[in-house]
Nucleic acid binder design. Structure first.
Lengths: 204, 204
DNA sequence: GAAAAATATTGAATGGGTTCATTTTTTGAG
DNA sequence: CTCAAAAAATGAACCCATTCAATATTTTTC
């Protein structure tokens, strides 16, 4: 009657998540063995697999959290009354990039991206891709908002522009996580430079 | 005195390459076991590893061939006297996409991309990234060429535009290889639509 | 409250990429 | 031709993620 089962389950889930997060950050994703995670969580290897489909699935919990928060913070920003297209892009993209390393390391991002490309039919990839699309839509929404408010030319295809800007943001982020040397400031300024022509030309 | 050693080496290398290419295409990259490749080539597993650093390294031979040919065919196209920016983009990008599945399957592309992100310090990734940069430069060159010939506005940053267009091409290609349903015609038209605003606005 | 059913845990076994100590082959000097 | 050194080939052993049949625990039924 206590829901003992559910209680234990929740507890174990918490312990496994904590152990994995800690080890991923500590020794890196690749070096964190399932056995180590299970040991640290006080369960067996088999139990780990009852809670998570596989090692990559573990990452999604964290990736998901990271991106959901990014989306939320982006949504509030879109409502602002931006006066300048380039500035608006920089603000939104800045929010994305600034938040990106809150829960995930570069290595964890690389692994997540790598998995989502390598196994596109896995639930992992599906979820990752869905998050990407929501981010892309958000950039499109920003462009549409600017157009409605008369800042962007009436004759531009907002989705086309939004998707192009987002794809560029994404690709540059891949380059960023591939190189431990690069920092967020450099990333931002490179993207701002790339955005400049488009931003200025679509401005009324 | 015959250079017997060198001769055998070249022969084995050829046999391993042929076996791997054939199996990757036939049963897919993941299902092709090193043991199978070695068997088909008539060598031992250990010998495979004397010739290729690892399984992913095998792919690079093919990826490299594919991209080198794409670069060559792109280079001749840049010299043409394009009159329309959108058309010029579509022609170059079309060449890239049309050639992309000559030697590689979508699965092989996914694996190659996935590896290049997951292990950025590996020789594999370095080579892959270098090829990507050359492609990006080629798009920049096209924009510069159009600007020199008075078709693109004098005040645009050709590299910024070129990089943005290429990054979008690349990201869309990732989406393409992630989904076995998508075809090249659809890919081309989606990218053309995304390019349209930028192409029209940078035109004199 | 005892037995049956449902659910969860376990760790040894599996599979495939990669390594490495040992063996075989080739080369070149005498 | 002979033999020692160099180069190449070999496959059993290793590492880890993942699976699964056996075991243990919790819940439900009567």
């Amino acid at each position: 009657m206590t829901g003992l089962r559910a209680q234990k389950k929740a507890d174990k889930n918490r312990r496994i998540l904590a152990a994995a997060t800690s080890l991923f950050r500590d020794v890196g994703y690749d070096s964190a063995r399932i056995e180590d995670i299970a040991d640290m969580a006080g369960v067996s290897v088999g139990t780990f697999y009852n809670y998570y489909k596989n090692k990559g699935d573990m990452l999604m919990a964290t990736v998901s959290m990271e991106v959901e928060e990014v989306l939320t913070s982006g949504a509030t920003l879109i409502a602002h009354n931006h006066l300048d297209v380039g500035r608006a892009f920089a603000d939104l993209i800045g929010k994305y990039y600034d938040h990106s390393l809150t829960y995930l390391s570069k290595e964890m991002w690389r692994t997540a991206m790598s998995l989502s490309i390598a196994q596109p039919d896995s639930p992992f990839s599906k979820r990752y891709t869905a998050l990407d699309h929501r981010l892309s839509k958000q950039v499109c929404d920003l462009v549409r908002n600017l157009q409605t408010r008369g800042i962007v030319r009436k004759d531009v295809d907002c989705d086309a522009v939004g998707e192009m800007v987002f794809n560029n943001v994404n690709m540059m982020f891949i380059e960023f996580v591939k190189d431990e040397e690069l920092d967020i400031a450099g990333l931002k300024s490179a993207v701002a430079r790339q955005n400049a022509p488009l931003a200025s030309l679509i401005t009324v």
